[in-house]
């Protein structure tokens, strides 16, 4: 059962369209698997919409006549529309997309269907593909952990979002399952281990900083993993 959900503030920002594409995608993937959060999103969207379009004082003077500028825009839209409607059928269909890790084919969530995904980099039991979103210091990846694989213990200066797409993993705080939305910040230290392997969608906004023994030497490759 899904146990970890995005915080309310995050859902709110998601509904407002204020989050980067990477974080928005993580929330969307979670919501598609979590009726509770989906419901919150629906409800919030309805409320925000209602507030956005409610009457304001300045509408008092709004006459039925459009301003010249608006009338121009309207007639342009309608003229374009005339042109569009015959050959431009917009559908809601999304093509299915798969990604291959270690010989296993995974169906990607719909929200990733049109994102550019880079090649696979292998580091031991970890394999990673970047999702190329060009969001500056925010890096988004698909991270595959083979059975009994783990990510060396690390902390973050920024945040790390992990969304489990398939399988499970655990750290000292517990076990996580498909659909769980895990967000950690610099306060947390963790070492995820996956007994049976898993595939995650990860978003981090800073290089990892490894904190333990020999792994300190690995610090330069932190950004390679996540």
């Amino acid at each position: 059962m899904i146990n970890h959900h995005p915080k309310f503030e995050l859902i709110q920002a998601y509904v407002n369209g204020d989050l980067p594409a990477s974080v928005s995608a993580a929330i969307k993937i979670h919501a598609d698997m979590c009726p509770e959060c989906q419901e919150k999103i629906l409800q919030l969207t309805e409320q925000v919409a209602e507030i956005s379009f409610e009457k304001v004082e300045s509408d008092e003077d709004m006459s039925i006549e459009l301003s010249e500028q608006d009338a121009d825009m309207l007639s342009q839209i309608l003229a374009d529309a005339e042109f569009l409607q015959t050959d431009d059928v917009v559908t809601a269909e999304v093509a299915e997309r798969f990604v291959m890790f270690k010989g296993k084919n995974y169906k990607l969530p719909n929200v990733l269907a049109n994102m550019e995904i880079g090649g696979v980099t292998n580091i031991g039991k970890l394999a990673r593909s970047r999702v190329l979103l060009d969001e500056g210091e925010i890096r988004t990846s698909l991270l595959h952990i083979e059975p009994e694989g783990s990510v060396p213990q690390h902390t973050h200066k920024g945040f790390e979002i992990t969304l489990l797409l398939d399988g499970e993993f655990s750290d000292k705080s517990g076990t996580y399952v498909k659909g769980d939305f895990i967000m950690l910040d610099g306060q947390h230290e963790h070492q995820p281990v996956s007994d049976n392997g898993c595939l995650c969608f990860t978003v981090v906004n800073d290089a990892l900083h490894f904190t333990q023994g020999i792994n300190k030497l690995l610090n330069p490759i932190g950004s390679l993993i996540y």
Partner: peptide, 22 residues
């Protein structure tokens, strides 16, 4: 504007014909 990307991801993130989980 920010990322110079014209990938129009929004309709994938917030589909206009949203199907409910249920």
């Amino acid at each position: 504007v920010k990322s110079n990307k014209e990938d129009n991801l929004s309709d994938d993130i917030w589909p206009l014909a949203e199907s409910l989980v249920t």
